[in-house]
Design a protein around this nucleic acid. Structure first.
Ligand SMILES: Nc1ccn([C@H]2C[C@H](O)[C@@H](COP(=O)(O)OP(=O)(O)OP(=O)(O)O)O2)c(=O)n1
Ligand SMILES: [Mg+2]
Ligand SMILES: [Mg+2]
Length: 1152
DNA sequence: ATCCTCCCCTAC
DNA sequence: TAAGGTAGGGGAGGAT
């Protein structure tokens, strides 16, 4: 029992003894202790008497200053609520003594805690049986309180996973769920910012200017590698205290519970669970010494809620994040609890990441309150020293978020992380590379990131506590104990070495949803119902990240055999065994039905008793990007097709009922497209028609059909499944792909309509989405496989020639030239396509020569048709195409339009009657004839002359194709256009334009066709001279036929001023090269390492370092609060921070 | 050797 | 009452 006395009490006593004379602190203040308290009433009485206070054995209204209570029944609270009685927590007494003076009692008011429990109070009030009694203590007391409870709460109904809204409610209250979600959010956030080119590094620019204009900043000392770690101080508490500033100095924790006593109905079970826990631990680690029974302090009615975060005042009492509230209250009885504020965390986290991102995007998000940042290039670019930057950054973060943070800097992530630890709270610490070995020695192994309870216990068993001790353990020993890699890592860490790079571009490897709270099932149906919900949750999460999974893992927590039935924590999981099992699927999926089905299959194999389940989880791995990722249809390519359709036919939007199968395909298609998985199974006809129509050539689909068989082969041996679900389950799995709603464009959509849709799509959409482009490429692929070469050609030509490709103002971030090159690309693709086609046809033809076959199918006719088509296309190239883009562009569509519309109608008819033969659905005869008609229009008549032309066109066509391919390739290779002579132009530029001292980095290339682009560095004397010059240079290039030029001026005079004079340099050297920082830049310039020792630290910085240097002088520099800090020289030294023993963190986890 | 599955461990 | 999630590194051991 004496062990139970808190440190605090002891401290008070010893202090009192040392002092001998006790101060008069309470000065006549009187208290009455009501009910059970910690410290006890007796102890409080002595405290009061010793320090000049008065102890009342009864509450005397108007006389007793405070009523002291830890906990009161609701009825009593209700009774006192509206009276003038001030009820305070006992810790007020101890805190006053500790402070040596009377403290404001308000933070210790017990009633304020209960204000938030208004609901419960109302509940009591609202009940008719007690409402009249609520004003009178006597009447309430007359009724047995337990009876009242029973009546109100016949069987204490607890909300478990079988209840309807459990999942939502649980997740909305789960702190761990929230921080996991936020962590993923910010990893993604950084990814997105990095992709977005338009991102502005405003704070970095500001910092640069600040440095230039603040002469009394320290001289810049370059660093070769600097990793920063930032972590918010006691994050949840800091956020919570933003609007409770009066609590800042008090010990505060964020929890769900408020520290009230808890019903002790299952005291035995709680005891038993604690003991089993201890037993398991000792068995596991074979060392009873290492075990510190964390639960010794926790009584039968102490709160088992977890402290999510506690502030540093609370940490002085030994409280830790993750500790149970009951335990924390023993350490610090007057710990103040505040509720969660999940929106606040998100808000602050966004501000934090947003602000750091305005310095650099070399950020690896670790969690919502923490990140690693590679500062190397940032510091090099701004020429600010590490600790100056830290001071500025932390000050800004505090101003923006209202919360403090700490930063650590080091040569690698390990050191940076530990430096932050040392800096906390509200501090900063910089470890220079050469200091890191010394720095790390004093850390305990348990403080190393990656070393937790298990490893530190094992090391403790080997008599290793500190990093210094760890250094002496031979590698072989570590590897024998912890495995190859872990052993290696441990040793490296112990010397302060860490070569893990920062990961700026995060790629998810798994998506899961787990619930290990409130799982209490009676029957299997309840389990099934919950798995359904969980599967739906997983589907949502997959969709949110546009992913599909190819493997499903079921995770279960099963009550350990000897664990008591009631868990220590209300609705917790108690002591459990863990079971996981996984399946690999044939096709990646995000469909909740598939996930559910597979999950149940695994579950059935595991044969668990639903009553023993304490936790469930579903995890998807082997992720692939999903093609149809975005569930929302806004801006999707196929929606444009649908829209057009609607415009065309007014009745297009009357949705067909499930029975109206016979429909024009594209309409049908769009409806089916929109249909989710839920209605996929209803009309087999629709589905199969759709599938066959679309995917006769879709290998995925072919793979999917026999997937059940394959699955049986692959997994059947192990699974030993019962035959019950094979029929239904398998047939559904076979059509999974389409159930999932993979969106496809029906190849029957006329190419004209398609081009219109594409035009609209391109003009509306900022950035082409991946699934759109895939959809488009699928569509084209199908056209090719259906041998609709003319349509393909038409669409490709459309890309090549339509206006939006040539002069689209829409530039997305990856495409600053707009779509201009697409024309060239299109030409190249077109040419390659045609060459490949010629080749395959030649081969085919040869085969036929060698081994002639009888013509007994329409395929032959089709082939002939195709050849005719090829000749036609080439002929078109020859007669229409080569002359100019616009000409063929205007002449093609009308022909195609009318023809294809007819074809579609015909095709739709064929489809409605015979959906198996769609491969040959377009009568080739019809096709060919039609083409000929067109040709007759453009030449003379259908006779020998025509035949001759066909052959001639064929031959010439090949030549043209090859020539055009070569041209396209040359353009893509950025070669200098043939009619331009670079050297000549450069020489003339120097000669003809006065004031140009030198020209270098001179490049000329062809964006497309006759759009020629030049870039050059031009040296002149100073800015004003350049202004005069610029006009002339532009004019010069204009005369040379180059209308788009990028000119980088260099000024001799300024360069001389800012750089060492010794570097005056030969005229060929570039004054505005990248600065010397690292090693990676020279190779990244256009011409490679023509000059030595110049680089950019990272691609992100390049534009700023290399191009915008001359902007600096024109920017006005403000003098904000930040510059004042600098001037005050208030670089904060790191606060020395004791290494906290991590005992509780190690002892805390309940799962052994 | 390298892969896969089923764990365990860690971090926040 | 209480809201014990989630992603990733890595090891053991078997299959290839
Ligand atoms: N067992 C834990 C650990 C952390 N968190 C939450 C609350 C914390 O505020 C937040 C950030 O975790 P940190 O490890 O960064 O801890 P703090 O920010 O609270 O304190 P510190 O100042 O040590 O960073 O994550 C939690 O809910 N449960
Ligand atoms: Mg933190
Ligand atoms: Mg943190």
């Amino acid at each position: 029992m004496s062990a139970k006395k808190s440190k605090l009490e002891k401290q008070f006593r010893s202090e009192a003894q040392i002092e001998g004379v006790k101060k008069n602190i309470f000065n006549g203040t009187s208290i009455f202790v009501n009910g059970y308290t910690v410290p006890s009433a007796d102890e409080l009485k002595h405290f009061m008497m010793d320090y000049g206070g008065i102890y009342h054995h009864y509450y005397k209204t108007g006389n007793t200053t405070f009523m002291v209570a830890s906990n009161l029944p609701h009825v009593k609270i209700q009774h006192y609520k509206n009276s003038a009685v001030k009820i305070i927590k006992p810790s007020w007494v101890t805190d006053c003594i500790e402070a040596g003076k009377i403290l404001d009692h308000k933070p210790y008011l017990l009633l304020s805690d209960f204000d938030k429990e208004q609901k419960q109070l109302n509940f009591f009030k609202a009940n008719p049986s007690t409402s009249s009694a609520s004003t009178s203590t006597e009447i309430i007391n007359a009724v047995s309180p337990s009876k009242v409870e029973k009546k109100l709460n016949p069987s204490p109904k607890r909300k478990t996973a079988v209840d309807d809204n459990f999942l939502d409610e649980f997740y909305s209250n789960s702190r761990l769920h929230h921080i996991s979600t936020l962590s993923a959010t910010f990893k993604q956030y950084i990814n997105e910012l990095r992709i977005k080119r338009s991102h502005q590094f405003t704070a970095r620019e500001f910092l640069k200017n600040l440095k230039l204009n603040t002469p009394n900043m320290e001289e810049y000392q370059p660093v070769q590698c600097c990793i920063m770690h930032i972590d918010m101080d006691c994050f949840f508490v800091s956020v919570g205290l933003r609007n409770r500033p009066e609590l800042k100095e008090f010990p505060v924790a964020v929890t769900h519970a408020k520290g009230n006593r808890v019903p002790s109905d299952h005291a035995e079970d709680r005891r038993a669970e604690f003991e089993l826990h201890e037993k398991r631990f000792k068995e596991k680690y074979q060392n009873s010494d290492a075990y510190k029974p964390w639960f010794i302090d926790i009584g039968e009615s102490d709160s088992m809620a977890e402290v999510a975060s506690c502030n540093y005042a609370a940490r002085n009492f030994g409280i830790k994040n993750g500790m149970l509230l009951g335990q924390a209250l023993k350490l610090c009885p007057n710990l103040k609890t505040i509720p969660y504020d999940f929106d606040g965390y998100k808000d602050v986290a966004y501000k934090l990441f947003g602000h750091v991102a305005s310095y650099t995007l070399d950020i690896e998000a670790v969690s919502c309150d923490e990140m690693f940042v590679d500062c190397t290039s940032l510091l090099a670019c701004t020429k600010v020293n590490v600790l100056e930057f830290a001071t500025i950054l932390r000050k800004e973060i505090q101003e923006i978020t209202g919360c403090t943070c700490s930063t650590g800097f080091g040569p690698n992530r390990l050191i940076a992380r530990l430096a932050t630890k040392k800096a906390k709270p509200d501090g900063q610490f910089y470890v220079r590379p050469e200091e890191s070995k010394d720095f790390i020695q004093d850390f305990l192994v348990s403080e190393l990131p990656g070393v937790g309870r298990s490893i530190s216990t094992k090391l403790a068993n080997m008599n290793v506590q500190s990093c210094k001790e760890l250094q002496d353990v031979p590698l072989s020993v570590l590897q024998a104990e912890f495995g190859n890699k872990m052993g290696q890592n441990l040793q490296r860490y112990s010397f302060g070495e860490d070569d893990r790079p920062l990961n700026f571009c995060h790629q998810r490897k798994s998506v899961s949803a787990e619930v290990n709270y409130g799982i209490r099932f009676q029957r299997k149906e309840e389990v099934e119902a919950f798995f359904k919900k969980l599967s739906a949750e997983v589907e949502n999460r997959l969709n949110n990240v546009k992913m599909k999974g190819k493997a499903i893992t079921l995770k279960l927590m099963i009550k350990a055999e000897n664990a008591p039935k009631e868990t220590a924590k209300f609705l917790g999981h108690g002591i459990c065994d863990y079971v996981t099992k996984s399946v690999s699927l044939i096709d990646a999926t995000a469909d909740s039905e598939v996930i559910y089905r597979e999950t149940m299959k695994i579950f059935n194999q595991l044969k668990v008793n639903p009553e023993d389940m304490r936790g469930v989880g579903i995890q998807m791995t082997k992720l692939t990007e999903s093609k149809n990722g975005a569930p929302e249809s806004h801006g999707r390519l196929d929606t444009f097709v649908v829209k057009i359709k609607k415009k065309d036919s007014p009745d297009g939007d009357t949705r067909p009922g499930p029975s109206s199968d016979v429909r024009i395909t594209e309409e049908n298609n769009s409806k089916l497209d929109e249909a989710g998985p839920s209605c996929s199974n209803k009309s087999k006809f629709n589905e199969s028609e759709y599938d066959v129509t679309l995917s006769q050539v879709d290998t995925d689909y072919l793979a999917a059909l026999p997937s059940n068989i394959k699955e049986e082969i692959i997994h059947g041996l192990r699974k030993r499944r019962k035959n019950n679900t094979s029929g239904d389950g398998n047939s559904r799995l076979g059509s999974t792909k389409n159930d999932n709603g993979v969106r496809k464009l029906n190849p029957l959509i006329p190419s004209t309509e398609m081009t219109t849709a594409i035009t609209e799509w391109v003009s509306k959409e900022q950035i082409p989405k991946e699934y759109d482009t895939r959809m488009l490429s699928d569509y084209l692929q199908q056209l090719i496989l259906k041998k609709e070469f003319e349509s393909v050609n038409f669409i490709v030509n459309h890309f090549q020639k339509s206006n939006f490709l040539q002069m689209s103002p829409k530039k997305w971030s990856k495409n600053t030239f707009g779509w201009a090159r697409a024309e060239v690309l299109g030409a190249l693709v077109n040419a390659v396509f045609l060459i490949a086609l010629c080749f395959s046809i030649t081969v085919e033809a040869c085969k036929r020569f060698i081994e002639p076959k009888e013509i007994h199918s329409e395929k032959w006719i089709l082939s002939v048709g195709i050849m005719g088509l090829i000749v036609n296309i080439i002929g078109l190239f020859l007669f229409h195409g080569h002359g100019g883009h616009s000409h063929s562009h205007s002449s093609m569509p009308p022909h195609n339009h009318s023809r294809l519309t007819q074809l579609v109608t015909a095709g739709a008819d064929a489809n409605a009657t015979d959906d198996n033969e769609n491969d040959e659905r377009f009568p080739p005869q019809h096709f060919h004839d039609h083409i000929h008609e067109k040709k007759v229009d453009s030449s003379t008549q259908m006779n020998m002359h025509g035949v001759f032309l066909h052959v001639l066109a064929d031959a010439l066509g090949s030549v043209i194709v090859i020539i055009s391919a070569t041209e396209s390739a040359l353009i893509l290779l950025q070669t200098v256009p043939t009619h331009i002579q670079v050297d000549e132009i450069q020489r003339r530029l120097l000669e003809h334009v006065d004031g140009v001292l030198a020209v270098h980095e001179f490049h000329v290339w062809q964006l497309a066709g006759d759009r020629i682009i030049a870039s050059a560095h031009i040296r002149c004397r100073n800015l004003s001279e350049y202004m005069k010059l610029a006009e002339k240079v532009k004019e010069f290039f204009h005369n040379e036929g180059i209308h788009s030029t990028t000119i980088q001026p260099e000024f001799v005079e300024i360069a001389d001023f800012s750089e060492n004079t010794e570097k005056k340099a030969p005229a060929q050297d570039c004054v505005l090269d990248c600065p010397k920082t690292d090693k990676s830049c020279t190779l990244s310039t256009c011409c490679g390492p023509s000059k030595k020792g110049r680089e950019t630290p990272s691609p992100v910085d390049t534009p700023y370092l290399c191009r915008q240097r001359n902007n600096i002088n024109s920017t006005q520099i403000g003098r904000g609060p930040v510059s004042e800090i600098i001037e005050r020289g208030a670089l904060l030294a790191n606060t020395n921070h004791m290494h906290e023993a991590e005992a509780s963190a190690i002892a805390n986890p309940l799962n052994i």
